[in-house]
């Protein structure tokens, strides 16, 4: 490491961890003595501790004064409903400044992009949950009074809070999904949008055309950007929501198919089903079941 300052040398190695030459030099230096190893450990500890500190320090004295505490010994003040604040807000709304304020806050879109690495989730202002596959992107209007979401790309599963007076609306490519309170999955693939209803009922629309989808058989609708209509498929596609729901259901389905779906979900090698049982029709339901337990359940059902 030449005549370079030891601390500078360590910093150089810490900030360039991917450089194999530097790491080799560091390892050699660490081998030389116990002192070197201790020094390195200390510097690294400080270097890393410093990385997690906030940019602004905490001022105890000032913060203490800001605490909204009632005086010792007295009863805590009961919080009354802030009528005064509400009245002031209403007045503000009625005035010109209020209208400006209302307009400037009314049309505000929030965009959210899911983490790249794993499944992400988001709670919308109305309490509805959205699960997003990695990299999926959506935006929603704030305030969220008209419950509108635009899916920009990827795949999302919506678990919509019931609110009879307000429909929940998802726009995805050319497709529009209207719901009252239900759970469904929307996926955009190039210019194709696929919707699967997991629970309840939705209305899928495209250019004035409409198809109503319910959970169970016939719960998938596809809207193609090029070809005209809405495709309404036969069959139950609920299991395609498993990434979000952790819920797999099979009703009277062939064992070979069931095993393939399970292996795919748990990311395990294909399961060997005895030849004579491959076409056996089975019914089973897994919810949040660990892989090993799922295997046991499948084996038991096959034996019945």
């Amino acid at each position: 490491m030449n005549n370079k300052d030891v601390t500078e040398f360590v910093i150089d190695c810490l900030t360039d961890a991917g450089n194999r030459d530097k790491q080799a030099a560091l390892n050699q230096w660490l081998q030389e003595s116990e002192d070197n190893r201790t020094l390195y450990a200390e510097l690294k500890q400080l270097w890393e501790a410093a990385a997690g500190v906030p940019p602004v320090s905490f001022d105890k004295e000032e913060s203490w004064k800001e605490l909204p505490l009632t005086t010792a010994g007295s009863k805590p003040i009961k919080r009354l409903f802030p009528w005064k604040a509400v009245a002031a807000a209403v007045l503000l709304l009625l005035s010109g400044a209020g209208i400006w304020w209302w307009q400037s806050t009314a049309l505000h879109w929030t965009t959210y992009t899911a983490h790249i690495s794993d499944r992400d989730s988001l709670t919308l202002p109305d309490g509805s949950r959205v699960y997003l596959k990695p990299g999926t992107s959506l935006k929603y209007k704030q305030p969220f009074s008209d419950r509108s979401v635009i899916l920009l790309s990827g795949e999302a599963y919506f678990d919509v809070t019931k609110a009879a007076e307000h429909t929940f609306l998802v726009q995805a490519g050319d497709a529009i999904v209207r719901v009252l309170g239900t759970a469904f999955n929307v996926r955009i693939e190039q210019n194709r949008t696929e919707v699967i209803v997991f629970e309840g009922k939705i209305s899928l629309q495209k250019n004035g055309q409409q198809v109503v989808l319910s959970s169970g058989n016939g719960n998938k609708g596809t809207v193609d950007g090029d070809k005209g209509g809405i495709l309404h498929a036969q069959g139950d596609y609920s299991n395609q929501c498993v990434w979000a729901t952790a819920d797999l259901s099979f009703e009277n389905e062939e064992a070979a198919h069931v095993a393939a779906v399970i292996a795919d979900y748990y990311k395990i090698p294909a399961l060997k089903i005895p030849e004579n049982l491959k076409h056996k029709r089975i019914t089973l339901h897994l919810h949040n079941t660990p892989a090993e337990q799922a295997m046991e359940i499948l084996a038991t059902v096959l034996d019945e």
């Binding site: 300052d5 601390t7 500078e8 360590v10 910093i11 150089d12 200390e42 510097l43 400080l46 270097w47 410093a50």
Partner: peptide, 17 residues
């Protein structure tokens, strides 16, 4: 930059550890 970072880190180490 390296020099100043080293000064800072040495300062921390001298006072803390």
């Amino acid at each position: 930059v390296y020099f100043q970072l080293a000064v800072a880190l040495k300062h921390l180490r001298t006072h803390l550890l």
